[in-house]
Amino acid sequence: MIINNLKLIREKKKISQSELAALLESSRQTINGIEKNKYNPSLQLALKIAYYLNTPLEDIFQWQ
């Protein structure tokens, strides 16, 4: 199971779900699903999230 700190990191950087979704060329619903652990992002999307949040991938997503 993958757990994530996306919501915590996103809020700390003062970025809304909609703003992050626009940067990622994704939907706000996708970001919401990832944050609620209802959806696991593809590797490509996970890497883009890490890039746009300027945060190491392993700080956002962790195996448990």
Rank of each mutant, 00 (worst) to 15 (best):
I60M: 05
Y51N: 07
K14Y: 06
L8S: 14
N40D: 08
N32I: 14
L8R: 14
E58G: 13
Q29Y: 11
R10L: 07
N5M: 08
T55K: 04
L47Y: 10
L43M: 13
A22S: 12
P56K: 10
I34D: 01
L6C: 09
E58L: 09
K12W: 08
S16F: 04
S26I: 15
Q44T: 12
E25D: 14
L47R: 12
P56C: 07
T30W: 11
F61A: 00
I15L: 13
N5F: 09
E11Q: 12
L20F: 05
S16R: 06
E25W: 07
R10A: 04
Y52G: 02
E35L: 05
Y52D: 00
I60R: 01
T30H: 11
Q64Y: 11
S18Q: 13
L23E: 06
I15C: 06
L20T: 00
N37T: 04
I60V: 08
S16E: 04
D59Y: 10
S42Y: 05
E25G: 15
K38F: 13
I3Y: 08
A22Q: 12
L57C: 07
I31L: 07
Q17S: 05
L47M: 13
L23G: 09
I34A: 01
N40Q: 15
N37C: 12
Q44F: 10
L23H: 10
N40T: 15
L57D: 00
G33K: 15
Q62P: 08
K38V: 13
L53R: 00
Y51Q: 09
T30S: 06
F61P: 00
Q64S: 14
F61Y: 01
P41Y: 03
N5W: 09
Y39M: 12
L45Y: 06
S27L: 05
K14E: 09
N32C: 11
E19S: 11
I9E: 04
S26Y: 09
I49W: 01
Y51T: 07
L43D: 03
R10V: 04
D59C: 14
E19M: 11
E25V: 09
K14H: 11
Q64T: 12
I31R: 01
N4G: 04
Y39T: 10
E19I: 09
A22W: 10
P41F: 05
S26T: 15
I34E: 01
T30C: 15
I49L: 05
A50F: 04
L47Q: 12
S18C: 12
Y52L: 13
I15V: 09
M1L: 15
K13Y: 10
Q62H: 07
T55M: 08
S42T: 12
L24K: 00
Q29N: 12
G33V: 07
Q64M: 08
N40S: 15
E11T: 12
W63P: 03
S26P: 01
L6W: 00
L45N: 01
I9N: 02
I3R: 10
K14I: 04
L53I: 03
I15Y: 08
L20G: 00
T55V: 12
K14V: 05
E58V: 09
K36E: 15
S27V: 05
I9W: 08
E58Y: 12
I34P: 02
Q17T: 08
A50W: 04
A22Y: 12
I34S: 03
N32E: 15
E25R: 15
F61H: 00
A50C: 06
Q29F: 09
N4Y: 08
S42I: 05
I3V: 14
L6R: 01
I9A: 06
L24Q: 00
N4T: 04
N4A: 03
E25H: 15
E11P: 02
N40L: 14
L47F: 08
N4R: 02
E25N: 15
L45H: 01
D59P: 03
Q64H: 13
K14Q: 12
K12I: 10
I3P: 02
T30N: 05
E58H: 13
D59W: 08
M1Y: 07
W63F: 08
M1K: 06
Y52A: 14
A50H: 01
A21D: 02
E35K: 03
K7P: 02
R28W: 15
Y51K: 10
P56G: 05
I2M: 09
E35S: 03
T30E: 10
Q62R: 11
E11I: 13
E35W: 03
I15H: 03
R10W: 07
L24P: 01
S18M: 12
E35M: 04
E35N: 01
A21S: 06
K13G: 05
K38S: 10
W63V: 04
R28E: 15
F61K: 01
N32P: 02
R10S: 03
Q29A: 14
